[in-house]
Design a binder for these strands. Structure first.
Lengths: 251, 251
DNA sequence: GCCAGATTAAATGTCAGACATTAAAATGCC
DNA sequence: GGCATTTTAATGTCTGACATTTAATCTGGC
């Protein structure tokens, strides 16, 4: 394993980078055991705490896992789709919330990606996927549902659409786009009428997928996107109006 | 900040999770300074090395940055699109290489996502994007280019297509899909004839985008996908044949 | 000979205290 | 007032020790 020259960065960051390169480059393969912390400390000529900090960095990225006990140690971790999902959702959510990404931009990206899944999903969706979508549509029609529950159901519905494409890579890629939108969607207050409209559009999508009609699925998704953006826009203008009224009152 | 009950997990993992929740939940905002390591150690009733391990976990995810000196400390980091790109590329690459994702599945996902960008890119691509694409097409036509260089140019070309959509969220999402494919693409040996065919298809795509013709862009991408998969398939069958011949020889 | 329980060994997890290094702020001199 | 110096508060690193976990080994009894 390579050593580190004198750099400005932390030793632990350099060591983590060196080990990461070995994993990404394929020199260290899945389930292979790394040298013990003491051996690594010896090799890199640093103390054990420094090595530990490096290993924790790698553990945070799910690149390694550690096991205690006699045959324990740090092992190269097989990165699983589920673990990657979680990281993606967190990262995407933070990107949206920290970078002032507008609702329109996020919404456009989300529906563009979903439309990418539509043709495949129209071909491959199983009865299970359709059943999930129908169940969520039914839930969305129930009165007394909170806005948060409505949005959560919406996410489940769209996840079923995406998973229907039967491509794990696509599902992984879209997990972030769909779920990261949820906090933004939660800002919308769904009236009874708007819920009804969304349920109708969802029904259109489910029908189109059931009929394996890719073009109709695409069209319905486009309609849903337009309606979602319209709703968000009305929320923004309503708030602006309220703020202006308040300002007028105090002035 | 909340405390941790007696759990089976590492203290450093629990502390990292607690702080992460505060950041994701918005209690800690961008550029806000966390308490010093000593204060955190005091608060969580652990030692400073344990706190440091927790902070390194967060640093590995670009959630915080640290600064030395009198006014130093750990600060909530604004997650930048560029940082997120890198993480995404690494994660996506590892997912593909560690989970035996087939070329076909990865390829299908990649082109489905690119087609999602096509309509937007047809509208919004700037002269800069077109110039980049033309330049890469020219490079790809040069003789004496290594397969790796050809693939790298291919990535740049497709990145320009994606960026042409003018949606940062889309660009971020697709960085992983496009770049993670590169190692798989590198396994293909591009003959002079296949390079010529790809250059022609790339030219079709650039022409369609220049003409702002979304349908033609989509069609060209579909052709390119089919051709890419055909190439990969021939590599696989050629290898299988070679292996069989060798086996026959030794037997 | 074989099995159950006790022991051992090797690894990670945690702690305490110290020193090194950095960079900003306070201080003092002119 | 401006510049050099000192102070200070923070992270970065080291040493050494102890705690805990877990599998392998040893031991004793049947």
């Amino acid at each position: 394993m390579k050593i580190d020259p004198d750099s400005t960065k932390d030793l632990s960051a350099q060591i983590a980078e060196a080990i990461r390169a070995e994993i990404v480059g394929g020199q260290l393969i899945v389930d292979q055991r790394l040298p013990s912390e003491a051996e690594l400390a010896d090799h890199f000529e640093v103390s054990r705490p420094t090595v530990r900090e490096a290993l924790k960095r790698l553990a945070a990225q799910s690149l390694i896992r550690t096991q205690r006990g006699a045959t324990g140690g740090a092992f190269v971790n097989r990165l699983r789709f589920e673990d990657a999902y979680d990281q993606q959702v967190t990262t995407a959510s933070l990107l949206l919330s920290m970078n002032a990404v507008s609702f329109d931009v996020a919404c456009e990206a989300r529906y563009a990606l979903e439309r990418a899944c539509a043709p495949l999903s129209a071909i491959r969706r199983t009865p299970d996927h359709l059943a999930t979508m129908r169940a969520e549509i039914h839930r969305q029609g129930q009165p007394g549902l909170t806005d948060e529950a409505f949005c959560a159901s919406d996410v489940t519905f769209h996840r079923a659409l995406v998973d229907g494409a039967g491509n794990k890579v696509l599902s992984y890629q879209l997990a972030g786009a769909v779920e990261a939108m949820q906090p933004l969607m939660n800002m919308i207050t769904f009236t009874a009428r708007s819920r009804e409209a969304i349920v109708d559009l969802h029904t259109d999508i489910a029908d189109a997928l059931e009929a394996q009609d890719a073009a109709k699925t695409d069209a319905s998704l486009t309609k849903l996107e337009a309606y979602t953006r319209e709703l968000a826009h009305s929320v923004v203008t309503a708030r602006a109006a309220a703020a202006k009224a308040k300002e007028h009152k105090t002035a």
